[in-house]
C-alpha cells in the first residue's frame, strides 16, 4: 500500500490496568489538559521545572507501557517545528553568544529550547491519554465535559467509519496497482484525485444510508452513549493529582532556587 499510511487505521489504544488507566475519561482529559497547560505556562528558562516535567512524563510513559515504536512515530509529527526550533538560534535576534564555537542568537536558543521541550511534553502527554483511553471513552468524556452534542456525534461517526473508508481507499489502491498503475509524479495525480472523487461519492452515499438506518430506529437527533461511568470522589482527587504535581514542581523549585 505504497500510497497510504496504514498505521492510522486502528487508533493506538492498548488495554492495560492501573488507576490512571481506569480514570473516567472526562477526568483524565481534563487532567492531562491542565497538566499540559501548566507546562505551557512555565517559562522556558525555568530549566529545572521542565526537566522535572520531563521526568514525570517519562515515568508515566513507562508506567503505562506506551510502546517505544509509537513514541518514535509520534515524534515525527513534530519535525517541522523542530526545524523551526533549530533555525531560531541561527536567524534569531541579537545578542549573540558563543555556543560550541558557533555565534548563535541567545534569545533564539532559549526560544528553540522552549518550543522543543514543551512540544515534546505535549505530544507525549497526548500519547499517554490516547493510549490509555478507548476511543469511545474519549467521546463519552467529551460529552461529559459539555462538548456540543452534535460535534461529539460527528466525531463518533468519524471514529466508526475511519476503518471502513480507509479499507475502501486501500481496495482502490490495490485495484489501481493490479492494473500496473504506479504513482511516480504529478502526472498520476489525476488518477489519484479521481479515486478521491469516487471515495467522496461513496462516503456521501454511505452517510445517506446511515441516516436512513438511523431514522428506521427512531433517530431524533440524540446519539445515546450507553455507559454510565460512575466517577467516585477518589477519581476526582486522582484527576487533580497531575496538574497539582506540576504546580508543586514550580513552587518547590522556586523556593529551592531562591
Amino acid at each position: 500500500m505504497g500510497e497510504i499510511q496504514s498505521h492510522i487505521s486502528v487508533g493506538i489504544y492498548e488495554h492495560r490496568h492501573n488507576w490512571f488507566h481506569e480514570l473516567p475519561s472526562h477526568i483524565k482529559i481534563a487532567s492531562v489538559f491542565s497538566f499540559v497547560l501548566v507546562v505551557v505556562l512555565t517559562p522556558g528558562y525555568f530549566f529545572q521545572a521542565h526537566l522535572s516535567y520531563a521526568l514525570i512524563v517519562i515515568s508515566l510513559l513507562i508506567w503505562n507501557k506506551v510502546p517505544l515504536g509509537l513514541i518514535r512515530k509520534r515524534l515525527i509529527i513534530e519535525i517541522p517545528f523542530v526545524l523551526f526550533a533549530f533555525f531560531l538560534p541561527i536567524f534569531g535576534t541579537d545578542p549573540r553568544i558563543d555556543f560550541f564555537g558557533l555565534r548563535l542568537s541567545e534569545p533564539g536558543l532559549w526560544a528553540g529550547w522552549n518550543i522543543l521541550i514543551k512540544a515534546t511534553i505535549g505530544v507525549m502527554m497526548s500519547l499517554i491519554l490516547s493510549s490509555t483511553t478507548p476511543q469511545r471513552e474519549l467521546l463519552v468524556g467529551l460529552e461529559k465535559l459539555k462538548f456540543p452534542k452534535l460535534l461529539v456525534q460527528i466525531m463518533s461517526f468519524m471514529i466508526r467509519y475511519t476503518v471502513v473508508v480507509t479499507e475502501e481507499l486501500k481496495r482502490m489502491a490495490i485495484a489501481r496497482e493490479s492494473r500496473c498503475f504506479e504513482a511516480k509524479g504529478p502526472k498520476q495525480w489525476g488518477v489519484l484525485a479521481r479515486s478521491g472523487g469516487a471515495l467522496f461519492i461513496r462516503s456521501y452515499e454511505r452517510g445517506e444510508r446511515v441516516h436512513m438506518a438511523m431514522l428506521s430506529r427512531g433517530y431524533t437527533g440524540q446519539l445515546p452513549l450507553t455507559t454510565r461511568q460512575i466517577s467516585s470522589r477518589q477519581d476526582y482527587i486522582n484527576g487533580t493529582l497531575l496538574p497539582l504535581v506540576a504546580v508543586a514542581v514550580i513552587l518547590i523549585w522556586s523556593v529551592f532556587l531562591k
Binding site: S156, R160, V210, M212, A213, R217, G218, Q222, T226
Partner: peptide, 24 residues
C-alpha cells in the same frame, strides 16, 4: 439493511443495539 456497516453506526456493539430502544 443489506450492508451491516450502514446499520451499525455506533462505536461499540452495545451502543448500537441500545440506539433503537433508547430512542423509544
Amino acid at each position: 439493511f443489506q450492508d451491516p456497516d450502514d446499520q451499525l453506526f455506533m462505536t461499540t456493539v452495545r451502543d448500537d443495539v441500545a440506539f433503537g430502544p433508547a430512542n423509544i
